[in-house]
Design a protein around this nucleic acid. Sequence first.
DNA 1: AGCCATGCACCG
DNA 2: CGGTGCATGGCT
Length: 140
Amino acid sequence: MITRTNAIEKMLSRNDTGETGGHQAGILIPKKPEILSFFPELNNEEKNPRFLIAFHDHMGEQWSFSFIYYNNKFFGGTRNEYRLTGMTRYMSAYNLKSGDTLTLSRDVNGFYSVKYQKDGVKKIGSGPLKLSNSWKVVKI
DNA sequence: AGCCATGCACCG
DNA sequence: CGGTGCATGGCT
C-alpha cells in the first residue's frame, strides 16, 4: 500500500503573504509527489481544475482554500503549477509573514486542519533567505 | 521549478 | 471605488 502524506508544512515566501504587493491570493505548491499526495486528486484532463477544501484552525475557525492546478500550458498557455488560494483572510487574521511556517494536515476521516508557527526560530545563519523548496512532509 | 507581479472581474 | 481573488505572464 502506498504511504499518503497526511501533513505538510511550508515556510511562507513574501509573495505568499502578499508582502510583495502582489494579490495572487495564495501560495504555491511544489510539484513534488509527496506534497501533492496530501491534496485530493485533480483532473489533469481539464484546464485549471480546482478543489475547494475546508480547513479548520486551532481556534475553531473554518476556512475554505482552493487547491488549483494551473495547467494552461497544456491548453495553449504557459502555466504549469499548483496553488492553494483564498488564504489572504486567514493570513491577515493571524498576521502571517514571510518566514512563518504554515502546516496543513489531514486526519483519517479526511478532516483538514491548518495551523501556523510564527518563526524567527529557524535561523538562516549567513546568506540570503532561501525560500525555494521550503515545503516538507510531516508524519503524524 | 519556484517566486514575483499584474490586468481585469467581482464584490463590499 | 478600493480590496480581494482569478488567471496568466515574467523573472530568477
